[in-house]
């Protein structure tokens, strides 16, 4: 059970890291980040279980979910405004700041 879950975590993380490099749509990028965070949440729960402190792990997981929701909301708000202002959500074209 732990092994399966751990492998799931690794899978989620790998998918997330790949997505960070490959996804060009800003909204999809935010979702990629969410995948990564879900991996981390799962990892916290597993860690609580294996170390015999499941309650601690669970409370951490819930806190992370809350905190991360705030980040996601802000990210989406900025993304929406950016789409309105510059008309694109392609992060490859959001490169006015460079050099």
């Amino acid at each position: 059970m732990i092994l399966t879950l751990s492998l799931t975590v690794v899978g989620l993380i790998l998918i997330g890291l790949y997505g960070l490099l490959a996804v060009r749509n800003l909204f999809k990028l935010i979702i990629t980040l969410q995948i990564l965070v879900k991996g981390a949440v799962l990892a916290l729960v597993i860690a609580g279980e294996t170390s015999g402190r499941l309650q601690l792990g669970q409370s951490l997981a819930v806190t992370v979910i809350v905190a991360d929701t705030v980040v996601a909301v802000i990210a989406l708000a900025l993304a929406v405004q950016l789409k309105q202002q510059s008309g694109t959500v392609d992060v490859g074209r959001l490169d006015t700041l460079k050099g």
């Binding site: 993380i13 997330g16 960070l20 980040l33 990564l36 965070v37 991996g39 981390a40 949440v41 990892a43 916290l44 597993i46 860690a47 609580g48 294996t50 170390s51 402190r53 601690l56 792990g57 951490l60 992370v64 980040v71 990210a75």
Partner: peptide, 18 residues
């Protein structure tokens, strides 16, 4: 946020180990 996720993973590892 990407960095922060890595920190969380680290925390999970420390918790699992110690």
């Amino acid at each position: 946020a990407a960095g922060s996720v890595l920190v969380l993973l680290g925390i999970a590892l420390v918790l699992a180990e110690t």
